[in-house]
Design a protein around this nucleic acid. Structure first.
Lengths: 335, 335
DNA sequence: AGCGTTCCCGGGAACGCTCCCAAATCGTAT
DNA sequence: ATACGATTTGGGAGCGTTCCCGGGAACGCT
């Protein structure tokens, strides 16, 4: 393979200096129309493609966006990722996807920092996961960051990152309200989403009921099996009329457990999900769920990020809302 | 933000030259154990992370792999992507993920070429999709390429790319054989996978039967809805005992359609899937499906690619096999 | 004509690293 | 002791850009 042309070759070819080539490459002003045209032609003729590494070394910044996602197998994110990809690719950005495993040694912030230092992206989107502490170090690096669907606990300083989320606390309350209004009192909550639970707790408290809570590892919360197992444990108690699942994946697992137990949905027990993933429409019965506007979330995440990068806009915190999709897996309590 | 440490800082800190630091960084030999340890400590203490751009600039090669995936929302790929990510990230490669929409104007080859030119990756993995023609141009660029789960039609020259696939024709035959052996004769096939159908056709022919075929757009074949719609159309005819779905996603959609129609599975009609995605275990009844070894596929794809990159191994074509997972959605024909 | 602006353009330095070559050090056989 | 190979280390020259600065040309004004 013949060595690729570099900026000097183009300069020579066009009869100008490398600086001038660089200027037209980057759309900087200070080049006469005639020269600009000549350089453009040279670039075209030589099928010259600028060396990305050199560019980013020199300007200390690349044209890439890191998307750091916790739980990539969660179908909820697949759709968002593809939307984000589409948008970002369209704007000429690379998307470096990094999956992120959380354990007691590595937090999302740590991972983000080390990836940032390596890749020097123009911006980052953190997808899913949760943020607890030591975000100070992330804040330091000062790269545009959008957290999408990420739970941020204990952060009183929201000036250094943008976010696109749902109001977890409010949505939790909405879920709880819905099942309570429909007469359910013996409720089991499957899943662990700090804020969502907090909102629920408030409502349940108003109704004077204490639901059974099934906590689970955060990093297993997007597996069907987790929902299945949790539901099995719950069903052993045999006292509940409603399984409130904090994600559709969990709900689908739970539905399976209910069927295995020989119970009918929703006659014997209701199941409610949260997310609105496509599979939810294809369970039997169809899942009643609170649908997150994930298309909208993806769109907002990208446009917010681009706003931060290009226009140096201040950080925004966008809060979106779910809509209830009534399927057949939920029914009011009779009598 | 304080300027990040560079290789000179580390060198000074450890009391050696940058060359020595570079050597330990890259695991080159010619550094005494004692010095190596001291440098390692310096790196550790300064939380130094080498600048990737500078590295790839000076060594004329990036450390990135492009993964081009057709149909990222297909749950089948989500898992593979996350495995590929994990492996590749572990080996120090960036993963640039690119989603690829196929239409009559842009083929997978075209997309791959243009992305290659921009990103100059060390290698590429093409995930899913299909390859029909004009691969000559792709061949020209000479970058290590692995096609994973990609259908390659009409390519008699397999020396310029590696592949990791299942034997679609054989697996198709296996599926057909299975349902026929169990007495099914009135079969509908949902989905369109050229080679898989070819294998089926052979078997069906042997049995002297002609199944109803429901073709569909390739790029809608990974949507639940597609399976649902196809099944509804089939069920109107009301003559079949078995729905043979060429993917689990389609099968799950089909199951829903059967339920909606008020029919029982497998008593009234059997449903068979193909892929072995996690959701399949959570349908009701559990899906009977031919499970692709996708973990293995991901592993093999990565190791093949790394083999091509590092060891300049020749191209390999790895063929893996499915295993039948017997769920409750299939039953032999009575009598 | 002289002077200040503005507009174009070129050259040099820097970005942080790798790679090659030469120098220094050490060990061992003569 | 000397010579010589092997091992370890340091220094210099790039890699292909961008960015800053300074020089010259062209222009308008006094």
């Amino acid at each position: 393979m013949p060595k690729d042309a570099n900026i000097y070759d183009i300069a020579r070819f066009a009869g100008v200096s490398k600086s001038t080539v660089s200027r037209v490459l980057n759309g900087h002003k200070g080049v006469s129309g005639e020269t600009r045209a000549r350089v453009r032609k040279a670039i075209e003729d030589c099928t010259y493609i600028p060396n990305n590494s050199a560019r980013s070394l020199s300007s200390i910044s690349t044209k890439s966006i890191v998307v750091l996602v916790h739980g990539i197998t969660n179908p909820f994110f697949s759709r968002m990722i593809s939307l984000i990809l589409e948008k970002l690719n369209g704007k000429g950005f690379d998307v470096i996807l990094h999956s992120c495993e959380l354990d007691e040694n590595t937090s999302m912030a740590d991972t983000a920092i080390s990836i940032y230092k390596e890749k020097r992206p123009k911006g980052m989107i953190l997808l899913g996961g949760y943020f607890e502490e030591n975000y100070q170090s992330l804040q330091m690096i000062g790269v545009p960051i959008v957290m999408a669907s990420t739970t941020v606990l204990k952060s009183d300083d929201r000036t250094w990152f943008s976010s696109v989320t749902i109001d977890d606390e409010g949505e939790g309350a909405k879920m709880a309200e819905y099942v309570c209004l429909n007469g359910h009192r013996d409720i089991a909550v499957i899943g662990q989403y700090h804020l969502r639970e907090k909102g629920m707790a408030r409502v349940f408290n108003d109704y004077g009921i204490t639901p059974t809570a099934v906590g689970l590892d955060y990093d297993k919360a997007y597996l069907f099996k987790t929902g299945y197992k949790a539901a099995r444990r719950i069903l052993k108690q045999g006292t509940h009329t409603c399984l409130l699942c904090l994600s559709d994946v969990l709900a689908i697992g739970a539905i399976k457990a209910v069927h295995d137990k020989g119970l009918r949905i929703p006659e014997d027990i209701s199941v409610v999900g949260f997310d609105g993933i496509e599979n939810g429409e294809y369970t039997n019965p169809t899942l009643t769920t609170f649908v997150q506007p994930f298309d909208e979330m993806a769109v907002q995440s990208v446009s917010t990020l681009l706003g931060l990068i290009n226009d140096k806009e201040p950080h925004r915190h966008i809060i979106l809302h779910t809509t209830l999709e009534k399927g057949g897996s939920f029914a009011p309590v009779k009598g």
